[in-house]
Simulated assay, not measured.
Amino acid sequence: MTDDETIRHYLAEAYESGDSGEIRTSLGHAVKDKGTKEIAKRVGPTSKTLKQMLAYEHVNCAAIAIIVSVLGLRMP
């Protein structure tokens, strides 16, 4: 998944599922595919912290919104 349209579609499907674990996993895949180090630089934490944040079951909404924004997307 490298093009934005594919990532948008992938994340939209996860969001529509309503499953927070699926949303978190999908965001993790999108971040990995776009380049964890590059995304981490733009979000603020290290790439390790970013991966841990997405692995955490109760990742906060603000973190998700920042990641989605850095990916160049909008939450529905």
Score class of each variant (00 low, 15 high):
Ser20Gln: 09
Val43Thr: 14
Val68Met: 03
Val43Lys: 00
Arg8Gly: 09
Ile64Gln: 03
Cys61Trp: 09
Leu50Gln: 03
Leu27Met: 06
Leu73Asp: 10
Arg42Lys: 14
Asp19Met: 04
Leu54Asp: 00
Lys41Trp: 04
Glu5Pro: 02
Arg42Met: 12
Gly44Tyr: 09
Thr49Cys: 03
Lys34Tyr: 10
Val43Met: 08
Ser47Pro: 13
Lys48Gln: 13
Lys37Tyr: 12
Pro76Ile: 08
Thr6Gly: 05
Ala65Trp: 04
Val68Asp: 01
Pro45Trp: 03
Val68Lys: 01
Ala40Thr: 07
Thr46Phe: 05
Pro45Glu: 06
Gly18Asp: 08
Asp3Trp: 08
Gly44Ser: 10
Thr25Val: 06
Ile67Arg: 00
Ser47Lys: 08
Tyr56Thr: 15
Asp19Cys: 08
Asn60Arg: 04
Val31Gly: 04
Ala55Gly: 13
Gln52Leu: 11
Arg42Asp: 13
Ser20Gly: 01
Ile66Phe: 02
Ala55Ser: 14
Lys32Phe: 12
Lys37Ala: 15
Lys37Gly: 11
Met53Trp: 04
Lys37Val: 14
Ile64Asn: 02
Thr46Lys: 00
Tyr56Phe: 11
Asp3Lys: 09
Leu73Arg: 02
Val70Glu: 14
Leu73Ile: 14
Cys61Lys: 00
Ala30His: 00
Glu22Gln: 11
Lys32Ser: 13
Thr36Ile: 14
Ala65Thr: 13
Ala63Ile: 04
Tyr10Met: 13
Val31Ala: 10
Ser17Ile: 09
Ile23Lys: 01
Ala63Arg: 07
Val68Asn: 02
Ile7His: 01
Thr2Phe: 12
Pro45Thr: 09
Arg24Pro: 02
Arg24Asn: 05
Arg42Cys: 03
Gly44Gln: 08
His58Ser: 13
Met75Ala: 14
Gly18Trp: 06
Leu27Trp: 01
Val43Cys: 13
Ile67Cys: 09
Thr25Ser: 09
Lys41Ser: 14
Glu22Met: 08
Thr2Ser: 12
Thr49Phe: 07
Ala62Leu: 10
Arg74Trp: 07
Asp33Thr: 12
Tyr56Glu: 15
Asn60Trp: 01
Thr46Asn: 06
Gly21Ser: 09
Glu13Pro: 02
